[in-house]
Design a protein around this nucleic acid. Structure first.
Lengths: 342, 342
DNA sequence: TATCTCTTTGACAGCGCTTTCACCACAACA
DNA sequence: TGTTGTGGTGAAAGCGCTGTCAAAGAGATA
């Protein structure tokens, strides 16, 4: 079959131990011997078998990143950050994701087969009991991304979703003067949506605005769905001091597009704000006021935590909280209003 | 350390061979024995060590997908298709990508360490000699995506870029009546760009339009860059029978946005068309006329080819060519013109 | 009872690698 | 001369698993 360490040893006329020493370079080998071995390796095109290596060393130098769905701008930023950090720490990153129609359950089962990885960062958007149960079964080191982790024993890196949503709501109500806010979120089970909704109600209360359940919608984070909903509901929403607070930029963009199609002016007749600050926020006309979520950093911190734990399994669990940042653009009407006032 | 097949054997009071038989389920084991073993496995929470398994079987049931850059809509579709197909064929997919600043060289080196995978699908957008050389070094089965592969010995799945570009150019010139077309492409080394440019020149010739090198721009496929270029050049471009043919939707969207910002009406004062039919094409106002590229199918076919080859290493190389499809929307002005004519 | 199936099981040899331990030179010291 | 130390090397024991082969036991037949 393929060439093994034994073939190299034979060609270089040394023992396999010596070949191994040359490969791993941590013990002293006589320069003359080293050269002989190296040339044998080159001549045969030898590459160590990663399985055998992993079997001995109990490590592969590969870490995984598991996402609920790989779709969209949002995730590519996480991957990007994670990738860079992994290389920096001497690991290789592989990414996997749940496929259409399958829930995170199959994602975790899959993950289990992946014991070839030294560790894994798992992004959890909907934390069900079943997932938590499965998590307890994972043998390799792991960290949780963005999940509302009850069990503080896990390493985690989360975004302070609520704080970001509070900032946005306070901007919209306090600074832009909205008197009615329509909330368009993801599914109720989604942890991000839950946090944003909490902030929504809180700020409504702070400002003496009544909370109307009919103004809260639960969608699927998609552009199209939001577009269709908006086409249908826009008439009910319109108002100079009304604002739609969408739980992500994509839906916000869909709503803005629907408004455009129906002749509703944004922001003068209806303000619309988003969340995430993906590229679509800048591409939308008017550009979306949104909340920047440090995606790339989230990926990077998660991998950093993970690699640290791999190397030091017994250190106490670390929890990193990343702060989002309000980004004011045009769709909230703040800039336009200020201009008028001045 | 962790629990091994030996521990299970001891607890169930059988030999490790029997445990192995139960795990792999292909040989007959007495039901009573099987039950004992299974309960021991459950009790200990035993999971076979993937390294040891791989070492014996020379396979991991994992295939890889290597992308030049994981960024953007474009790639997520490939991943999605690849993912689905991999599961269908009983493999798990992992994805890896080059990181910022590093070229595909480091991507391939990385890949080499990944001999834990049974095979790999490699997307190549710029085929340099060095890459081709490195490709020759890859030991595991692989297929090439979208690369202009000179060596027909490799399995490959490519999009018929030129045909798509021809269709678009003929639509723009022949059906929409453009008399001057500005081409905005990616880097000259990019194989897709090269194919599109070829079609561009060909159709210009067919219609007696002169090819002007000053009307050809080489950018980086990014929204921002195109936006800036357009802001600067738009004055030179404007014209009722002029059209900008962008090599991807993102740049086309940037150009449309720049036109909007400068008060140039699309399509009446300048038509703009894109390529790829990513979601941004529908989100742009006016919606982009573009060429749909079957990304998801490309991913799926690549993985299918790959898994076939893994299972049957000696079959001859297969080359799949996928056909793109013209998608006429608003930004080319065709619909508007027809309305006027009727 | 002796012999021959057939089913079920266990012993054990690897897979390709790392690592310990022992060993051999040879130099440096007493 | 004998002892100790040191750089360089090889033999061999696993890592946790699969798969071959032979043996043991249970029935069936003579």
């Amino acid at each position: 079959m393929s060439v093994s360490i034994f073939d190299v040893a034979k060609l270089a006329d040394v023992s396999i131990s010596t070949v191994s020493r040359v490969i791993n370079g941590r013990e002293v080998v006589h320069p003359r011997t080293r050269e002989r071995v190296e040339s044998a390796i080159a001549q045969l095109g030898y590459k160590p078998n990663a399985f055998a290596r992993g079997l001995m060393l109990h490590k592969s130098e590969i870490v995984g990143l598991v996402l609920p769905d790989i779709h969209g701008e949002f995730y590519s930023e996480i991957i990007r950050g994670a990738n860079q950090q992994a290389r920096k720490m001497g690991y290789n990153l592989v990414v996997s994701s749940a496929h259409d129609g399958a829930d995170s359950y199959s994602l975790l089962v899959t993950l289990e087969q992946r014991s070839l990885m030294d560790g894994v960062a798992i992004m959890i958007s909907e934390l069900t009991d079943r997932i938590e149960e499965l998590l307890a079964d994972v043998r390799i080191p792991f960290v949780i991304l963005d999940g509302d982790v009850k069990d503080q024993a896990y390493d985690s890196v989360v975004i302070d979703q609520k704080r970001g949503a509070l900032a946005m709501m306070r901007h919209v109500v306090g600074e832009c003067g909205a008197r009615r806010v329509i909330f368009v979120g993801g599914l109720e089970t989604n942890v991000d949506t839950a946090a944003r909704l909490e902030a929504y109600r809180e700020v409504l209360g702070e400002n003496g605005l009544t909370y109307d359940p009919a103004d809260v919608y639960h969608l699927d984070y998609q552009y199209d769905t939001a577009y269709r909903l908006a086409k249908q509901e826009l008439q009910r929403w319109v108002g100079a001091d009304h604002c739609v607070f969408s739980a992500n930029d994509e839906m916000a963009a869909g709503i803005v597009a629907a408004a455009g199609a129906m002749g509703v002016l944004v922001p003068s007749e209806l303000a619309v704000v988003g969340f995430d600050d993906t590229r679509i926020a800048q591409m939308t006309r008017p550009a979306l006021t949104t909340v920047r979520v440090p995606m790339s950093e989230m990926g990077a911190r998660a991998i950093e935590l993970l690699c640290d734990r791999i190397e030091e399994p017994d250190r106490p669990a670390t929890h990193i909280v990343l702060e989002p940042e309000l980004v004011v653009r045009e769709s909230c009407g703040y800039a336009a209003n200020r201009l008028k006032t001045l």
